[in-house]
Simulated scan of single mutants.
Amino acid sequence: MEIHNAGMGYPLLDPYGNTAASGVDRNGETAAIRPKAADDGASGGDTISVSRDALLLTEARRAAQNTPDVRADRVEELRAQVANGTYTVDARVLAENLVREEPSLFRIV
């Protein structure tokens, strides 16, 4: 779901955007979001509480999105091993990974 600021006069919390721009305090759990007033004499505003776990989850998601899908250095290393005949596969490790990652392959229907 995506929520846009529909002219409400105050910024919305953007859990996947720039935390500084969204009003989230990286060092604490509470961020204040105050409506923009015509005069600067606004004495208060709404506050929200964001848990540290939610903040860590947001940072983890951002890091994952910025990580490349293909590790080019590893691909080149494996390509060189295949080309010179030194690439070997440990059948036990391969089988363990298949069982862990694709359990549906081993179900009897």
Rank of each mutant, 00 (worst) to 15 (best):
M1A: 12
E2Q: 13
H4Y: 10
N5M: 04
G7S: 07
M8G: 14
Y10N: 05
P11I: 05
P11C: 03
L12K: 05
P15I: 04
Y16V: 09
G17T: 04
T19C: 02
A20S: 10
S22P: 00
R26L: 12
N27L: 08
N27E: 15
A31T: 15
I33R: 02
R34E: 05
P35V: 12
P35Q: 08
K36L: 08
A37Y: 07
D40N: 14
G41K: 15
A42T: 11
S43I: 13
G44F: 01
G44H: 03
G44L: 02
G44D: 08
G45Y: 02
D46Y: 08
T47I: 10
I48W: 01
I48R: 04
S49E: 09
S51A: 04
S51Q: 01
R52G: 13
L56K: 10
L56E: 15
L57W: 06
R62G: 03
R62V: 06
A63M: 09
A64V: 07
Q65V: 05
N66E: 15
T67N: 04
T67A: 08
P68V: 07
V70D: 08
V70Q: 05
R74P: 00
E77R: 09
E77I: 02
Q81M: 13
G85Q: 08
Y87M: 12
T88Q: 10
A91W: 10
R92Q: 15
R92C: 02
L94M: 11
A95M: 14
L98R: 06
V99F: 06
E101K: 09
P103A: 05
P103F: 00
S104T: 11
I108Y: 06
